[in-house]
Design a protein around this nucleic acid. Sequence first.
DNA 1: GTACCCCTTTGATCTGTGTCAACCCGACTT
DNA 2: AAGTCGGGTTGACACAGATCAAAGGGGTAC
Lengths: 252, 252
Amino acid sequence: MHANVKQNVIPLITPGLKVACSECNLRELCLPFGLSESDMGRLDNLIGGGRKLKRGQHLYRAGDAFESIFAVKAGFFKTDVLTEDGRDQVTGFQMAGEILGMDGISTEVHTCNAVALEDSEVCLIPFTELEMLSSEIRSLQHHLHKVMSREIVRDHGVMMLLGTMRAEERLAAFLLNLSQRFTARGYSPAEFHLRMTREEIGSYLGLKLETVSRAFSRFQDEGLISVQQKHIRILDIPRLKALLAPSDGRIG
Amino acid sequence: MHANVKQNVIPLITPGLKVACSECNLRELCLPFGLSESDMGRLDNLIGGGRKLKRGQHLYRAGDAFESIFAVKAGFFKTDVLTEDGRDQVTGFQMAGEILGMDGISTEVHTCNAVALEDSEVCLIPFTELEMLSSEIRSLQHHLHKVMSREIVRDHGVMMLLGTMRAEERLAAFLLNLSQRFTARGYSPAEFHLRMTREEIGSYLGLKLETVSRAFSRFQDEGLISVQQKHIRILDIPRLKALLAPSDGRIG
DNA sequence: GTACCCCTTTGATCTGTGTCAACCCGACTT
DNA sequence: AAGTCGGGTTGACACAGATCAAAGGGGTAC
């Protein structure tokens, strides 16, 4: 349960890791999107270098002072919230090019945990300095707002999923979402490796791990996907999508 | 179903409604929080006046072009998302001093509907101009970021609720949240009027209206609250809070 | 290379919430 | 003042998913 505590004593910064945004192949997905060459250089200057994390390591924990947001350069993360009474909710899975840590802005303290699900790398973006720079670069400012807004919209999607969908619909939505995000990063839309356990998927989807497992098996039985442990191959994307739109169709 | 369509043809602006932020008794809750007197004046200048809405009227709809965010000056709103296949999820209830519309920033188009649940008033805050001003006023910029971040954190709380709580826990959390927000506005923590129907509460909490109704009845039977239609009186806040922390307590 | 442990799968049963249905109440309408 | 209608309550029953349990398999650590 506390397996990874010791690994996170010092928030190691690895200066050697620094790669200019302008040379990063994620720049079209990440914060520098839409910046001119010179503005990107200014953003580079404030990014405090990278940080490598081993699988299982925390990038930050609920309660940590908020100083930076993070851009995922490589790897895979989960964020989760846990309450005093032991509830645990995975609030998201983040992959390359996505931004982590914006939960901390409001209270100056992180409100969730971010954990690497595989060996990963992030860029540190000191927030105060980002605010200063974004007040000078309009497109950076606007893009930051878009990124935050996108997070809000994403959360609404999860609320919809948790509030209105049944187990198999949730899992179908989850797989299609992953597929689409992998596609945007140049990977196969149909074949990928899950970095998270059934329990983590379940927590994210508001289901128990057994239910997730059964839904996977059922999808496989019906020829929608093939599952081998964490290796997923989507065999029939259209039918998987159809699961999300009940046949009775629209209302009123 | 389309009862309110006709009321919303022209997005009426009511210039006479304009009240300076500096004279608004919500300034400590709202966007101008923490601004100096003179900066508040500059914010006043960009706020495009108020708008009044009757109960049932839409402030904006999914698909509307995004131009402004809105500060609730008086009244009560709900936001909801609905999908082509007829799913409907209430994503939030907003009261005086809260900000609406940030979902639209990411795509320049609103992604949810905002509906007045009682006769209400909002301030229009044109977003492009807000960005310009916030690049000049550090504290405004930072506060805007905080407001957006707070929305993200709030959404995480809802995800926790939807993902891990049982019906009565959800309703207890909902009532306590309302209570706390009313308190922050100077109203009674224990006695208030629900502006939304059981169905809307249910949609927000991921429950059917019958389940909401039963939970209310049960709370009343147990002496936790008294319910008369939409009038709620909380009789035992501590025991209501205790419902959220299962007796078996913590893990590990 | 081997051993252990965690993850996963699958079955049997239980239960909380959804579904369907009937009825009630209060607020508008006319 | 009576009628109507939307919102709310309550009951009976169904079912999706949780829970409990057991066994197998693959990855990881040593």
